Simulated assay, not measured.
Amino acid sequence: MNSINEKYRQMYISSDVKFYTISELTEMLGWSENTVQKLFNDPKFPSSDFGRIKVVEAHALIDYFSKKHLKQNDGYWK
C-alpha cells in the first residue's frame, strides 16, 4: 500500500518545472488555437508571460483542470 502512495506522489509532485505554450496546449488538448488563446486570457487561468510568450506551469495546469469551471455569458470560465 505504501508503494502505491509513493508512486502516486512521484507522479504528481516533481522538482522538474515544465511550462506549456499556447501551441503546445493546442496540440495536447486538440482544441483550436483561438479557444486556447481565450483560456490563456482568462484572468482565473494560471498563465504567465515569459517575454512575449504566454506559458502555464504543468502543476498549475493540472490543478486548474482538476476543478470544475463553468462558462459565463461573456465568454470566460468561472
Rank of each mutant, 00 (worst) to 15 (best):
M1D: 08
M1H: 14
N2Q: 04
S3Q: 12
I4C: 01
I4N: 09
K7I: 11
K7S: 10
K7H: 03
K7T: 09
Y8P: 00
Y8N: 05
R9S: 05
R9D: 06
R9W: 06
Q10I: 03
Q10D: 13
Q10E: 15
M11R: 11
I13R: 11
S14W: 02
S14E: 13
S14H: 08
S14R: 15
S15R: 12
S15K: 11
S15I: 07
D16S: 11
D16Q: 11
V17A: 11
K18W: 00
F19W: 10
F19Y: 15
F19T: 05
F19E: 03
F19C: 04
Y20I: 04
T21K: 10
I22Q: 06
I22D: 01
S23K: 07
S23M: 05
T26P: 01
L29R: 06
G30C: 09
G30L: 08
G30M: 06
W31V: 01
S32T: 15
E33L: 07
E33G: 08
E33C: 02
N34H: 09
N34I: 03
N34W: 00
N34K: 14
T35H: 10
V36H: 01
V36Y: 01
K38N: 15
K38C: 04
L39H: 03
F40C: 06
N41A: 10
N41K: 15
N41E: 12
D42Y: 02
D42K: 02
P43Q: 08
K44E: 09
K44T: 14
K44F: 04
K44L: 14
F45E: 03
F45M: 07
P46D: 12
S47F: 01
S48Y: 05
S48F: 08
D49E: 11
D49L: 15
F50L: 13
F50V: 10
F50W: 10
F50S: 15
R52D: 04
I53K: 15
I53S: 07
V55Y: 08
V55C: 07
V56F: 05
E57W: 05
E57R: 12
E57P: 02
A58H: 10
A58M: 05
H59G: 08
A60V: 01
L61S: 02
I62A: 14
I62H: 13
D63W: 09
D63G: 04
Y64N: 02
Y64R: 02
Y64S: 01
F65C: 13
S66N: 13
K68P: 01
K68T: 13
K68I: 07
K68Q: 15
K68S: 13
H69L: 01
L70F: 15
L70G: 03
K71E: 12
K71D: 07
K71Y: 06
Q72M: 14
Q72I: 03
N73F: 05
D74T: 08
D74Q: 05
D74S: 11
G75P: 07
G75I: 10
G75V: 10
Y76R: 01
Y76F: 15
W77S: 04
